[in-house]
Simulated assay, not measured.
Amino acid sequence: MENQKVTQLNPKLGAPKTIVTIIVALIIGFLIFQSVTIIQAGHRGVVLQLGAVQPQVFDEGLHFRIPFIQTVIPMEVRVQKSETSQTSASRDLQTVATTIAVNHHLDGNNVNRLYQEVGMDYAARIVDPAIAEALKAVTAQYTAEELISKRSEVSAKVKEVLKEKLASYYIVLDEINIREFKFSEEFDRAIEAKQVAEQQALKSKLDLERIKIEKEQEITKAQAQAEALRLQKQEVTPELIQLRQIEAQLEAIRRWDGKLPNVTGGAAPFINVDNK
């Protein structure tokens, strides 16, 4: 009878074991899941161990970590764009509103240092202030007109200054683009008036040069004509005059039709001849 009772109790004892096995399996699966992390493309993983930043940085792909001890913070290292409008002053104390676009990315090998020193809000804490400071430092070296006429040079200097500032925080500057320099309405009107005056001055200068050239051409032409007359006068001799008279007489004989004129003038005038 006792053996039968024990046999009847065994099936009931199997159910708790199954539940325990399932729970253990779930715990093991959860621990395995927690020990694996995947870093997506274009990102790096900052490893925190009990809140402390670790020296290693996870690249893209699958990585293992210590569950509940280590945490991985993903940080994007792809090119990011920051566009802002900053107000500064030129060397001649004109107010300049500059719209600038900046392309930058994080140094993938040092994202852990950036996270430790700055945090995730690096754009507002580092990038934007650095852009404003670089613009103010460079625009103060140029007059308002020079900012317009030497735009490529200004852009190169801003890039150089900004690159140095961002590099100290492990941010790499890729490119900048100064989209617009905007000045006060009074300055714009002054620039427009100056351009109109320069255009009018240029037109007057061109007109004077044209008149001067035309006058020089007339003088040259008159001098050439006078020289030609002078040379012709030098070449006129009594022999030349006699030759021209003989040539004229020969030409008249050649053209004569054989009829005598009724009246002619000169030293030996003809008389009326009546052909009968």
Rank of each mutant, 00 (worst) to 15 (best):
L106T: 05
L147S: 00
V236T: 04
T98W: 07
E186Y: 01
V53G: 02
A132E: 15
A124K: 14
E218P: 01
Q70P: 03
I39G: 01
L48D: 01
E235D: 14
Y142N: 06
L9H: 12
V273A: 08
T71Y: 07
A41M: 15
I246V: 13
L62F: 14
L93H: 09
L166P: 00
E76Q: 12
I246S: 10
E235Y: 10
Y170S: 04
L106K: 06
V46M: 06
V161L: 06
E160M: 08
Q200S: 14
F64R: 05
Y122I: 00
T37A: 05
D274Q: 11
E146R: 12
L50P: 08
V79Y: 06
K205Q: 15
I126V: 10
A101S: 05
D128R: 14
A41S: 11
Q245P: 07
T37D: 03
S35R: 00
H104W: 07
L106E: 04
D107A: 05
K182F: 06
E251M: 15
S152G: 05
E247L: 07
P16Y: 04
I22T: 10
R113V: 12
T99F: 02
V96N: 02
E133Q: 11
K81H: 13
Q8T: 06
E60D: 00
Q249L: 13
A134M: 01
F181N: 05
T139W: 09
T7D: 11
N103E: 13
I219Y: 13
D128C: 07
I271F: 12
A222E: 15
K212E: 15
R230E: 13
L9V: 15
F270I: 14
N10L: 15
S168D: 11
S149V: 13
T139D: 12
E60R: 00
L260E: 07
R244C: 09
A123M: 14
K5Y: 14
L9I: 13
W256E: 03
D107I: 02
R65F: 06
E235G: 08
K12G: 12
Y170T: 03
G14W: 14
A123G: 11
R189C: 07
G61Y: 00
L114E: 02
L147M: 03
G265Q: 13
E218F: 03
N3I: 12
Q223P: 01
Q232K: 14
E160P: 06
I32D: 03
Q200E: 11
K5A: 13
V36M: 13
L135R: 01
